[in-house]
């Protein structure tokens, strides 16, 4: 098969399809394949953490050590770095966000499995949830009207308010969508790139010759490199999601 058809098939494979239930449109109650992997990843996270919290020793070693290191990384580099010691109240939330995204991303790296965050449903849901949470925290602390008024940077002359305020509100409301799209696109695009290099390798194996051998080996090497890069990107995306959540929370608590 030629390249166009292979790519179509790749894209088709990466689409969510129904595992349980009939797909009668976007609002049907189905369980898609991505949902299965999401549930598997979340279950794995819960099991990992509950087992690790039982095996803690004073001198760290074993499974408990990894979980502790993860929590300490979130605590020092994300929460304390951005918010200071008053952010410790929000530590469980940020830890949950970080590890949910991380485990889902990592699960998708295993060949044959897909990341639970590789579909817009998951990422939009989490983005909107983060948005709701941090706005609610801000409103609870400052009151509704002062919080809405705080969108305006202080010191703007009155005759610019009608222009600046809507811009600020729009850019504020874009935040959940950018969070969701960033995560989804990184995961989805990573899989597509890996798939395309795989297609190149398979095609050059099918029509063996001098040129295709070179192209084939280069593609294989590229695929290995991209695989390593995907691991890096998985971690970075989880980190960025968590730290943007913290930054938004901080911004809502100490109004800009």
């Amino acid at each position: 098969m030629d390249l166009g058809e292979s790519i179509q098939e790749l894209l088709h494979e990466l689409q969510p399809f129904a595992v349980i239930g009939n797909n009668t449109g976007k609002t049907s109650l189905i369980l898609t394949n991505y949902m299965v992997f999401l549930i598997i990843a979340i279950a794995l996270t819960i099991v990992f953490f509950v087992v690790a919290s039982r095996k803690l020793t004073l001198v760290p070693k074993g499974v408990g050590n990894i979980a502790e290191w993860g929590v300490e990384f979130v605590r020092n580099n994300i929460v304390l770095d951005v918010m200071g010691s008053e952010g410790m109240v929000y530590l469980p939330f940020i830890v949950t966000v970080f590890f949910a995204v991380l485990f889902n991303n990592f699960l998708g790296l295993i060949p044959g499995l897909k990341p639970g965050t590789g579909t817009l449903g998951t990422t939009f849901a989490w983005g909107i949830m983060v948005f709701v949470v941090y706005n609610w925290v801000g409103v609870k602390k400052h009151g509704l009207v002062p919080y809405l008024k705080s969108f305006l940077p202080s010191g703007t002359p009155w005759w610019l308010v009608w222009l600046i305020y809507p811009l600020e509100v729009i850019s504020h409301f874009l935040r959940p969508f950018t969070l969701g799209v960033r995560l989804y696109a990184n995961m989805y695009a990573g899989h597509i790139v890996l798939g395309i290099f795989g297609i190149f390798v398979v095609m050059s194996l099918a029509a063996l010759g001098p040129v295709t051998a070179v192209v084939g080996t280069l593609s294989l090497v590229m695929q290995i490199i991209m695989y390593a890069f995907e691991v890096f990107v998985a971690f970075i995306q989880a980190y960025v999601f968590a730290i943007l959540t913290t930054v938004y929370l901080n911004g809502a608590l100490h109004t800009h």
Partner: peptide, 19 residues
């Protein structure tokens, strides 16, 4: 671009359980 509704629900519920 439009996500599945079931996906939204399942992901929110699983996040809540994890939390």
């Amino acid at each position: 671009i439009i996500p599945y509704t079931s996906e939204l629900l399942v992901s929110l519920v699983s996040f809540g359980v994890l939390f």
